[in-house]
Amino acid sequence: MQNIWKWRYFYLLLTPTVLYFIIFSYIPFYGVVIAFKNFQPFLGIWDSPWIGLKNFETMFSSVKFPELIRNTVLISLYRLIFGFPVPILFALLLNEVRAIWFKRTVQTITYFPHFLSWVVFGGIIFNVIGPSGIINLVLDKLGLETINMAANPDLFRPLVVITGILKEFGWAAIIYLAALTGIDPHLYEAVKVDGAGKLRQIWHITLPGIRPMIAMLLILQLASVLDAGFEQILILSNPVVYGVGDIIDTYVYRVGLLESNYGLATAVGLFKGVIAAILIVSANHIIRRTGEKSLW
């Protein structure tokens, strides 16, 4: 108690943050009961009738469920494998640039797509890869056969991963660039004295310097493996690619939200939350066992 009084100003400073999380993160947990109800928005949560596990049964009994899980996990894994290293590499490259004007110009250009909504960015993508898009225009002018990339199931997942990387890699690199600035410059001087070239400096100083940050972001990304990018997929997909592009969220949107079956949407949200919690705890545990700095 004495300690609390001693540090009262720090506790006072902490209070709004604690309040914030209570109000916006913990009190809304009450809404989880919607997963067990036939929720009717104008009756309210409490007055809507209880229906037990029916919403979960609806989801798990869907013949599409295995396909939805497969698509969701595959797209997320592809993002992880191909997308996760890109901002790290980009930050490393940008860190080596000495011309400040060039560095800033590149940073601005690469950040920019992050601020565009998927509706706008998706429209741009469609104008590039669509049947009448720029790529096909060029192919046509060159006398080559055109490719309908927007409606090709074999290309849809790569398209989702690549466009996702293009939109976000600049923004995602910020955190690594910030971590890079925290590396002690003396370490570089020391390793230079030992005769290390650029690649050796990156390998022995830079990467270990940002390794805790990489580990932390990896844990966080693993937690969202069941979020394969709802908005992006909704914008880019079309009936031809449903088989490879329909994910849990797009299905819930159609069967849950559009049919005002909000209980189903909440049940799936709860299911995804539980899986995310398991994944984040497991990943944190593994990373801690390997000696890296973990989230807790």
Partner: peptide
């Protein structure tokens, strides 16, 4: 009870894609 779900599960891919999906 389940009209939307069974339509989505069994028919939507085929009906929406029949004209434009070669497969």
């Amino acid at each position: 009870e389940k009209g939307a779900q069974i339509y989505n599960d069994y028919l939507q891919t085929v009906i929406d894609g029949a004209i434009i999906n070669d497969k």
